[in-house]
């Protein structure tokens, strides 16, 4: 489900993680982010992945991986069992967005979430021209996309507000991996968030 995450995605997330943390990566793909975190942060990491080929890739890489369907939630996972629960470029591919966000912050002290911004200007232009967007961050066509939730940075922040999820940090990037400060909902194709439980700041 996960696209191969870009390097800058890794580096931002790695910057949030202290040495020796316990990390859960939901939709971990072939395990490259976890390998990066293992090698640079010495984390005790686990990936959750449904796709058998990705599970095999993780095992080959020596990454702990748990084959499971995220749509089933995280019910087996202990509350507070992880320092960070990561979901890199997978949130848009899960049906039960609210439940999963809540679960991530139950199981983890903090969550790290990245997703493609459907509000990016090139996506808006495509829609304005009467076509569903296809881009570097949204590489699929409407009929073969694993994505099931279509939302923007503004939409996501509204949801966080309504769920009382604390947004501790946000990083936004455009298609060329440049940081976006000005109107990210229009100018960023990818957003990364560090999220905390209700009431958390900084």
């Amino acid at each position: 489900m996960t696209h191969a995450p870009e390097r800058f995605d890794f580096d931002v997330i790695a910057g949030w993680i202290r040495s020796g943390e316990r990390v859960l990566d939901l939709g971990c793909g072939d395990g490259s982010l976890l390998r990066h975190l293992r090698d640079t942060r010495n984390v005790l990491g686990y990936g959750v992945e449904l796709n058998p080929a990705n599970v095999l890739a993780c095992v080959r890489m020596g990454i702990n991986v748990l084959q499971s369907d995220l749509e089933r939630g995280l019910s087996g996972f202990e509350s507070g069992g992880f320092d960070h629960v990561i979901m890199s470029l997978s949130l848009q591919a899960v049906q039960n967005t609210e439940r999963l966000l809540r679960e991530m912050l139950r199981v983890g002290r903090e969550a790290a979430v990245s997703f493609p911004n459907f509000g990016y200007h090139s996506h808006r232009s495509a829609i304005a021209a009467g076509r569903m967007p296809v881009s570097r961050t949204l590489p699929y066509r409407w009929y073969d996309s694993p994505n099931v939730r279509f939302f923007t940075i503004a939409d996501f922040e509204d949801l966080c507000a309504s769920m009382q999820i604390s947004i501790l940090e946000r990083h936004a990037f455009d298609e060329n991996a440049r940081r976006v400060q000005d109107d990210p909902n229009l100018n960023a194709s990818l957003a990364l968030y560090r999220l905390g439980r209700p009431g958390r700041t900084g």
Partner: peptide
């Protein structure tokens, strides 16, 4: 098997779980 896996996770053991079709 999942029960075993989650009990191992709680104990911070390295564990990989595959559910094979």
């Amino acid at each position: 098997s999942r029960e075993l896996v989650h009990a191992l996770l709680c104990n911070r053991r390295n564990v990989t779980y595959a559910e094979i079709a």
